[in-house]
Design a protein around this nucleic acid. Sequence first.
DNA 1: GCCAACGTTGGC
DNA 2: GCCAACGTTGGC
Length: 182
Amino acid sequence: MPARKSSGTAPHREGPWAEVFAPRAKGEKRYWLVKSEPETFSFDDLMAAPGKTTEWNGVRNSAARNFLRDGMKKGDQVFFYHSMTNPSAVMGICEVVREGYPDSSAFDRRSEYYDDKSDPAAPTWFMVDLKAVKKLKSPVSLHAIKQNPALAEMALVRISRLSVTPVRSQEWDEIIAMSAGG
DNA sequence: GCCAACGTTGGC
DNA sequence: GCCAACGTTGGC
């Protein structure tokens, strides 16, 4: 592929994650995983939220931001993962109900997510709205995921620091199967 | 534009 | 509490 003027095409659309930003077949659904520390916001908190829905704000990593802003589409299915806890695990399923829009917490001086470098006229950070679909029958722990060779390539495993990651459809199906008790 | 220093995330 | 993996920052 010859080098090409970059105008009009953001780098992340051509990088290692290009496929998750690629145009979709009609009606194609894609899959994702988001992390949350349960002491901050747990899956049960989402189930109890008004409309079982929340703004997924506070993400301050540019790769994760790209997934939120440009990757996720309405109707996409999302694993809700508990991090920084024992055991860290996929707890439930939620759904994208609103596509990427500017993260207002970045402009709120009182917010712990305030970022004085984000300009409201050209926002740096984005969020989506997520709605709980259901809790998994049994959580699928990171340990179990790492034990499963079919999941060795999961972004969750490969890039442990990323708080929003793509999930391949076969990985999604594998974890759903594991959550039913094998 | 390079790269070392530093800060953050998150598993263990 | 430690450490690996990254992202960001700042000196040059």
